[in-house]
């Protein structure tokens, strides 16, 4: 028990003293997760608009498949990216395996179902009259869709934050395609997993506290957005 207490105190010391390695890992985590989240949103929000405002056979089936993929296991995405980027894989020549870029790719794919599904829900929550009125005032379909997106901007921002929260806290994928290389692909979650298994508890706890604080921040932003 005393040992644990000492570890916690040490962990706080690491954070307060702005330990170089802690800062480095935190920064990398934020950068990778933010990038993958932005990519996922940039692809999926317009897609959500197109899907929501068009009717095609199998639309409902498609949406329920997307919703099922909310619980897509990270290791499966990891496996997919690994096969894709491994030396003998179709994109093996690019030499991307075990790079931050591979992690971004994996996380972006992992986030797509959530961002797309919640994005469609966000647009669905907007009064249908908004689209109608926009068309009635001479908007084209793109302009009317953009107007609906503007009306749901808080819900969409919330979706993005939730995606970011998912990305920064996942570990399986980062470990598999990033490789947890120190100073290169090591992130908060992969570092915690490694340091814990090495018995370096104070370092793991310090990173854990930072991860929790980040999660708390994301949550607070989501809560604030919800009230808008």
């Amino acid at each position: 028990m005393e040992e644990l207490w000492r570890a916690v105190v040490k962990a706080f010391e690491l954070i307060v003293s702005l330990d170089a390695e802690v800062i480095d890992i935190t920064g990398r985590s934020l950068l990778i997760s933010a990038t993958s989240c932005i990519i996922a949103c940039a692809v999926c929000f317009p897609l959500a608009g197109i899907i929501h405002f068009s009717s095609f056979p199998g639309k409902r089936l498609f949406i329920s498949v997307v919703q099922t993929l909310y619980s897509l296991p990270t290791v499966l995405v990891g496996l997919f990216i690994f096969v894709l980027l491994s030396r003998s894989g179709p994109l093996g020549g690019l030499g991307l395996l075990f790079t931050p870029l591979a992690m971004v790719m994996g996380q972006a794919i992992f986030l797509c179902p959530i961002v797309l599904g919640l994005g469609i829900s966000a647009l669905r929550a907007v009064d249908t009259a908004i689209y109608d009125v926009a068309m009635a005032l001479g908007a084209n379909r793109v302009q009317a869709t953009l107007q609906v997106m503007k009306e749901s901007r808080y819900a969409l921002a919330m979706t993005a934050m939730m995606g970011f929260g998912r990305a920064i806290s996942e570990v399986g994928l980062s470990l598999m395609v990033g490789g947890n290389i120190k100073g290169f692909t090591r992130t908060l979650t992969t570092a915690i997993s490694l340091e814990t298994s090495r018995g370096n508890l104070e370092f793991a706890i310090a990173l854990g506290i930072i991860l929790l604080l980040l999660a708390l921040m994301v949550n607070m932003i989501v809560g604030w957005l919800q009230q808008r």
Binding site: A129, I130, D132, V133, A134, A136, G138, Q147, K150, E151
Partner: peptide
């Protein structure tokens, strides 16, 4: 685009 329409249920944009 040369016409405009005031719908029965009016909504305002944010």
């Amino acid at each position: 685009r040369r016409m405009s329409f005031v719908t029965q249920r009016t909504v305002v944009f944010s």
